[in-house]
């Protein structure tokens, strides 16, 4: 076994173990934090596949963004953190359903894996960095998708600001000056 294989199995072990913890843990906070290791292991895989940008994006977006969001959601939802996740009387039936769905998905995936035509061209030159290529294709080939996504995010941002500022918009002209003069950080002369 060479070094790469060792690292691969290490990451695989981390992903599988922490993934199992996410599913099986009775404590929802433990599950949320175990997700972190899963996401990290995935980032490790991306890095092994020489897509460094994707790996770092994985950490940035999933670990730094979405996971924090999940944890905040869990923590701010009242009385959820102390509660143990339990299955009710129909739990056994749920187990059956879950097992069935898992088996179906597993079969489907392995079918796909064996039947799809993988491009197995050996890489003749290891690219210095994937970031240049990603940048070019984002701003040439996929410019429309990129812009639409940007506009979508902008809309979401404005919406969030609107929700947060609801009362102030109603009772004032929402001139930024007025709001800032009310604020205490202004140095009183």
């Amino acid at each position: 076994m060479n070094l790469e294989a060792v690292i691969f199995y290490l990451f695989a072990l981390i992903i599988v173990a922490s993934g199992g913890l996410v599913v099986l843990s009775k404590n929802i906070m433990h599950a949320a934090f175990a997700l972190m290791f899963t996401l990290f292991g995935l980032a490790g895989f991306y890095a092994m596949l020489l897509s460094d940008f994707l790996a770092v994006s994985q950490i940035m977006i999933y670990v730094g963004g979405i996971l924090v969001l999940i944890i905040f959601g869990v923590m701010l939802t009242s009385k959820i953190t102390g509660v143990e996740l339990k299955t009710g009387p129909i739990g056994k039936v749920n187990y059956l359903f879950g097992a069935a769905i898992s088996v179906i998905i597993a079969c489907g995936l392995s079918l796909l894996f064996t039947n799809s035509k993988w491009i197995e061209k050996p890489v003749d030159k290891i690219p210095d960095s994937s970031i240049n290529a990603i940048g070019y294709s984002l701003l040439t080939e996929y410019i429309l998708v990129f812009e639409v996504a940007a506009v979508l995010l902008l809309i979401a941002l404005i919406g969030a600001a609107l929700i947060a500022h609801k009362d102030q918009i109603i009772d004032s002209d929402a001139s930024s000056n007025e709001i800032s003069t009310n604020n205490d950080i202004k140095i009183k002369e």
Partner: peptide
């Protein structure tokens, strides 16, 4: 706007 900028400059200079 002027106030806002003045405020920033003043805060910075007092620091």
């Amino acid at each position: 706007m002027i106030n806002y900028l003045k405020n920033i400059i003043k805060g910075f200079s007092t620091i």
